[in-house]
Design a protein around this nucleic acid. Structure first.
Length: 440
RNA sequence: GCCUGGGUAGUAUAGCCAGGUCUAGUAUCGGCGGCUGUCGCCCGCCGGACCCGGGUUCAAAUCCCGGCCCAGGCGCCA
């Protein structure tokens, strides 16, 4: 049976979440953390927890030896313990089953006064929670977020393998800004100035000329002084790049990935979704697609006049979200507001073969067809005020047979926010780094 | 970088506008005692706080100035 391991003829090891009425009468050993203690005098109820769930252990003080009484008297919340006893169906308990225990051993003692209320009876501010993040993560609903995240990682990798993509890792310490735009963190690199990478963009493009289809899941860094619920300085990006594809091809790959991820989470993380109170269903494909021009028209209809050529601002996206719920694409942004490597539409170079994946007003991903022509790429670099000399290694690759290619980058944590219905990105990061936080 | 709001026991808050009745209230938490069916256990007793510095005033948690720290939003972006 899942979660049960035979230890010997008399005792099996079992995890708290796997204690079920069907195991009535089994002699078990359980390891976990003390989630709650309800001491009624002669009777002591201890709720044990590990990431699999909770179970109730019952101890009787009547007839217990002094050693057991001492351990029970000194027991603290959140201590790591091992208990042993017999599983009993217990109609008088809400869980319907409990473990009638004979013994307990403290494996790691927690102090009496914990830095904040781990039971959740009293809410804690984000600052307090993050200052004591390990304790905070032990709350079942917080643990659940990262168990779902684990499944999302696995589902993404599985999907790309099926699609013939090769997982790669690109440098995170780089010599020059890759795209301009976002501010970079400067680091001292043996006396030279280097930067933390803001994206794998140029490397992944180069790599399609070797592997055709690549993807990377990795950390990237932005030194923006942003202070919002959806920005952090270190985030996880899911990036793909594929040869012989255009923006429409990679949009299909992107929506396919989202659907695969949702299905997998529904399959494997039902308990965690329930714990979070989230009901999910796989979105229908294809996702809705509107062009930048159509977005401006819709904004105008909603009473917000916007001049052609500017980027869609947060306020605009919030207005658009009234019409577009769930996932949708905005395509064909003006070439001028996109990075230099985005392919202009050949029939109308003012607009580009680009797209953003939105969830309501939250931007999840952006991508497009890339320029594969060396001369055009140089021209675009210059038009954006960048110096082609500092891109000479990159440009050289375009002389060695660079195919047509396209790709996108998706903010992993933003996707996890959507899947777990969290409104603050810090909730879905183990140890977030933002403008004002560098520890723990 | 800019704008707005905030900092009171371990945690979360009330009090601040309209200074004195604050010996700073409540919940949770922790300690001690009681309880054989708890499941946000319950009951009794106890413990613990006004961010730092300066100023105004007979009197400051409350008003003013400076500093430090935090939250949210904007711009930018994933």
């Amino acid at each position: 049976m899942a979660g049960v391991r035979q230890l010997g003829p008399d005792f099996e090891e079992i995890r708290p979440g796997f204690v079920r009425p069907e195991l009535d009468g089994r002699r078990v050993v359980i390891r976990g953390w003390v989630h709650e203690i309800r001491d009624l005098g002669s009777l002591v109820f201890i709720i044990l927890r590990d990431r699999s769930g909770l179970c109730q252990a019952v101890f009787s003080r009547v007839g217990a030896d002094s050693g057991l009484l001492d351990v029970l008297d000194g027991l603290t919340r959140e201590s790591a313990v091992r208990v042993w006893g017999t599983v009993k169906v217990a109609p008088q308990s809400r869980m319907g089953v409990e473990v009638k225990c004979e013994g307990i051993e403290v494996l790691g003692r927690a102090v009496e006064k914990l830095p904040y209320d781990v039971t959740g009876k009293v809410p804690a501010s984000m600052t307090t929670r993050l200052d004591h993040r390990i304790l905070d993560l032990r709350k079942p609903e917080n643990t659940a977020i990262f168990l779902i995240g684990d499944t999302v990682f696995a589902a993404i990798r599985e999907y790309f393998r099926e699609q013939g993509f090769v997982e790669v890792r690109t440098p995170k310490i780089i010599a020059t800004a890759t795209e301009g735009g976002a501010a970079l963190f400067k680091v001292d690199y043996f006396g030279k100035t280097a930067y933390l990478a803001q994206s794998p963009q140029l490397y992944k493009e180069e790599l399609v000329s070797v592997f055709e289809r690549v993807f990377e899941i990795g950390p990237f860094f932005r030194a923006e002084a942003s202070h919002t619920r959806r920005h952090v300085s270190e985030f996880t990006s899911v990036d793909i790049e594929a040869a012989f594809m255009n923006y429409e091809d990679v949009m299909r790959i992107l929506e396919g990935m989202v659907v695969h991820v949702v299905k997998k989470v529904l399959d494997e993380r039902r308990r965690e979704l329930e714990l979070l109170g989230v009901s999910l269903k796989p979105p229908r494909t294809p996702f809705k697609r509107i062009t930048y021009d159509e977005a401006l028209k819709e904004l105008r209809e909603l009473g917000y006049e916007k001049e052609w050529g500017g980027d869609l601002e947060t306020a605009d996206l919030r207005h658009l979200a009234k019409k577009h719920t769930g996932f949708y694409f905005i395509t064909h942004f003006p070439t001028a507001i996109k990075p230099f490597y985005i392919q202009p539409d050949p029939t109308n170079p003012q607009v580009s073969e680009s797209f953003d994946l939105m969830y309501q007003w939250l931007e999840l991903a952006s991508g497009g067809t890339r320029i594969s022509d060396s001369a055009l790429l140089k021209q675009r670099l210059q038009e954006q005020g960048l110096n082609p000399d500092s891109f000479k290694h990159h440009l050289a690759v375009y002389d060695y047979g660079m195919p047509v290619h396209a790709g996108w980058g998706l903010g992993f944590e933003r996707l996890l926010m959507v899947l777990t219905r969290r409104t603050n990105i810090r909730d879905v990061m183990l140890f977030p780094r933002d403008r004002f936080r560098l520890t723990p």
